[in-house]
């Protein structure tokens, strides 16, 4: 996208907004420059810096897959200045986009494997892009299990597409932290449900994203089931500014999450300095 100036955002317009939960909104945007939009290519798991001009920039994963290019989708949880400013925007308003940034998932290396996704809360966003990519290339991947949890049924994102995921042959296991009226799926924390489902580690890759505390227990759970470090992938969140390896903010030892990540295997993480 950026030929000469990687700091220069591409103007884009918001085409659609979906209220996912009380504090998460999904934005579907299209670059103003039609040719750039047509030629825009990225890998699942790569991120963008979204600008609200006058407020600032923040990092979000492009959670639509590269196989569906009508728009680029971002799900934004309102937590601070830029995210709240994004939530105030309407359809037709303009934002700036710097993308694609980061390494993304290696979809080629994942071919032929069975997959288990383990996501919590907004952590489902980076998993969604890969999940949809796999649905669009279904023959390349084995069986796919998705374990997705949130505090309550109202805190689950993408509820309106769950049926489509299931129609695509996904074994979707949903869970919420506590009983809720009308809720017919699982109740319990994600790591507990993971232990119940106990997906075989044989020829399987696990891909997880969620709050640090969930990740910690999911990791232990996966190990228990028999997953090795190299079979587990995650995508990290670090405070970012430049997104291009220069501003010096997002390093873990010698690795920069913005250019060497955000996707890492636990094999890689175990060799990095413990500063997560």
């Amino acid at each position: 996208m950026f030929v000469n100036n990687p700091y220069r955002p591409e103007p884009a317009v918001i085409k659609d907004i979906i209220q996912e939960t009380t504090n998460i909104r999904t934005f579907r945007i299209v670059l103003n420059d039609e040719e750039k939009m047509r030629n825009f290519s990225f890998k699942p798991g790569q991120v963008a810096q979204l600008s609200v001009f006058g407020v600032g920039e923040s990092t979000f994963v492009i959670n639509s897959p590269p196989t569906r290019k009508d728009y680029l989708q971002f799900s934004v949880m309102a937590v601070g200045e830029v995210t709240q400013a994004l939530h105030k925007l309407d359809v037709g308003d303009e934002v700036g986009v710097r993308a694609p940034l980061g390494n993304g998932f290696d979809v080629e290396a994942l071919k032929g494997y069975n997959i288990v996704f383990v996501g919590g809360g907004i952590g489902m966003a980076p998993l969604r892009t890969l999940l949809l990519y796999m649905l669009d290339n279904r023959q390349d991947y084995g069986d796919i299990i998705v374990i997705y949890g949130a505090r309550s049924p109202e805190d689950l994102c993408y509820r309106y597409e769950f049926d489509k995921w299931r129609d695509g042959g996904i074994n979707l296991v949903l869970t919420v932290d506590a009983e809720a009226p009308g809720w017919k799926e699982n109740v319990g924390f994600v790591p507990t449900i993971l232990a119940e489902v106990e997906p075989s580690a044989h020829n399987r890759m696990a891909i997880t994203c969620g709050p640090p505390i969930m990740i910690k227990f999911v990791l232990a759970g996966l190990k228990e089931i028999g997953f090795e470090n190299h079979q587990i992938l995650t995508t990290l969140e670090k405070r970012m500014k430049c997104g291009i390896g220069i501003c010096g903010r997002c390093n873990i030892g010698t690795k920069y999450v913005c250019i060497d990540g955000p996707v890492f295997s636990y094999e890689e993480l175990s060799k990095m300095l413990p500063e997560l």
Partner: peptide, 15 residues
């Protein structure tokens, strides 16, 4: 190391 911020007044501003 650096930070990036926006400064704006009405419709115009700078990054």
């Amino acid at each position: 190391c650096f930070n990036i911020t926006d400064e704006a007044k009405d419709l115009d501003g700078e990054r």
